[in-house]
Computed example of a mutant assay.
Amino acid sequence: MSGVDRGVGGSQRRTTDRRPSPPSPAEVLRTSFVTEESVYGVILVSGMIVVAGGHGESSWRVFWTVVITVIVFWAAHVYAGTVAHHGFDDHRMVSLGEAFRGALRRSFGMLVAALIPSSILLLGAARVVPDLWAIWTALWVGVIVLAVLGFIAFRRRGSSLLIQVAGALGTATFGFAMILLKAIIH
Score class of each variant (00 low, 15 high):
17 D>N: 07
78 V>P: 02
78 V>Q: 01
72 V>T: 14
64 W>R: 10
46 S>Y: 09
82 T>G: 02
19 R>D: 07
65 T>S: 13
76 A>P: 02
104 L>G: 04
54 G>Y: 12
60 W>K: 12
75 A>T: 15
42 V>C: 14
20 P>I: 08
36 E>L: 15
13 R>C: 02
55 H>V: 15
13 R>F: 02
91 H>E: 06
26 A>H: 03
90 D>A: 12
30 R>A: 12
12 Q>I: 10
62 V>M: 01
62 V>A: 01
31 T>H: 14
51 V>Y: 08
19 R>V: 14
22 P>S: 07
103 A>P: 03
64 W>Y: 11
42 V>T: 15
31 T>I: 02
109 G>C: 02
23 P>E: 11
21 S>C: 06
72 V>F: 14
98 E>N: 06
88 F>Y: 01
35 T>Q: 15
100 F>R: 14
104 L>V: 09
93 M>P: 08
61 R>N: 11
44 L>R: 11
30 R>T: 11
47 G>A: 13
110 M>P: 10
86 H>Q: 01
18 R>V: 06
61 R>W: 06
32 S>Q: 14
98 E>S: 09
90 D>R: 14
83 V>T: 01
58 S>R: 12
97 G>R: 13
76 A>D: 10
101 R>W: 09
102 G>Q: 10
95 S>L: 12
24 S>H: 12
63 F>N: 05
73 F>H: 05
76 A>W: 05
69 T>D: 11
81 G>C: 00
98 E>R: 09
83 V>L: 01
67 V>A: 03
45 V>K: 00
108 F>N: 05
23 P>S: 06
